[in-house]
């Protein structure tokens, strides 16, 4: 029993927290990046610009349908071929940001498509240009609808950072593995710690999502709710 309690010595906890810090750092940075790029790419995909939308759509479909582990290999082993040498932390940030941008872009596209065409037509009739109508009328409504789906995507992102141990990202998962790799008695305590730490972060995010859903859900029609639900389910991970 004492040996098991030794797993939670200050030295080990500190080591785990250092890993958790890397997990949080990589997650937060790639959440910010993928939110920005996801919306831009989603809009480009929706508005049907000659060439650009088609190419962006194609790239999104390709990357969305690959496992995240492959994207991690491509950034870590592939980017240096074009002159940029990321360390595991930056390689993970880039890989997660690219992968999740594509996921968010797909959610945003579906979100804009779920806004009734009348909104756009009405705005145009009132003298707004296509881009003004999109920017001020359609997009705000769409993003409001999409927030639960996007948050759920970000929960996946946090969980998926654990896969980056394959390129030796010193994250929570990696540090836990190092600890139980050096002392078998610590295996169960480490898995418990992993489960609790990931669960706390992800579950609080999902509570946030539910809170946002309730706060903004009031004025939505049933059709929108279903579109949101569907997009949540479409939102995917590794």
């Amino acid at each position: 029993m004492l040996t098991v309690l030794g797993a939670y010595s200050w030295v080990n906890i500190k080591f785990l927290l250092e890993g958790a810090w890397v997990t949080v750092f990589v997650s937060v940075l790639s959440i910010i990046l993928s939110y920005i790029f996801g919306i831009i790419l989603g809009v480009i995909r929706y508005v049907k610009i000659k060439y650009l939308s088609a190419i962006v759509g194609f790239v999104i479909d390709i990357i969305r349908n690959l496992p995240l582990i492959l994207i991690l290999f491509f950034t870590y082993f592939g980017l240096p071929h074009i002159g940029f040498k990321p360390d595991p932390i930056w390689a993970s940030v880039i890989a997660m940001a690219v992968f999740e941008s594509m996921m968010v872009a797909e959610i945003v596209r579906a979100g804009i498509a779920s806004i009734p065409v009348g909104q756009m037509e009405g705005a145009r009739a009132n003298g707004l240009s296509y881009w003004q109508a999109l920017r001020y009328i359609v997009l705000p409504q769409a993003i409001r609808n999409m927030i639960p789906a996007i948050v759920s995507q970000f929960i996946s992102l946090v969980k998926d950072t654990s896969l980056a141990t394959i390129i030796v990202l010193p994250d929570l998962m990696n540090h836990a593995q190092i600890i139980y790799g050096q002392n078998t008695n610590y295996t169960i305590p480490m898995f418990l710690a992993l489960a609790v730490m990931y669960f706390v972060v992800c579950y609080s995010l999902s509570l946030l999502s539910r809170y946002l859903e309730k706060r903004i859900g009031g004025n939505n029609s049933k059709k929108h709710d279903h579109a949101v639900e569907q997009a949540i389910e479409n939102g995917s991970d590794a």
């Binding site: 480009i44 508005v47 610009i49 000659k50 060439y51 650009l52 939308s53 088609a54 190419i55 790239v59 592939g78 071929h81 074009i82 296509y130 881009w131």
Partner: peptide, 24 residues
């Protein structure tokens, strides 16, 4: 605006090709 963007699209496509050729 759409026309300008479609030109950007072409440039973007060329860029992807150059990058992927470089990588290959």
């Amino acid at each position: 605006m759409k026309k300008i963007l479609s030109k950007i699209g072409l440039v973007f496509a060329l860029l992807i090709m150059v990058v992927s050729l470089g990588a290959c």
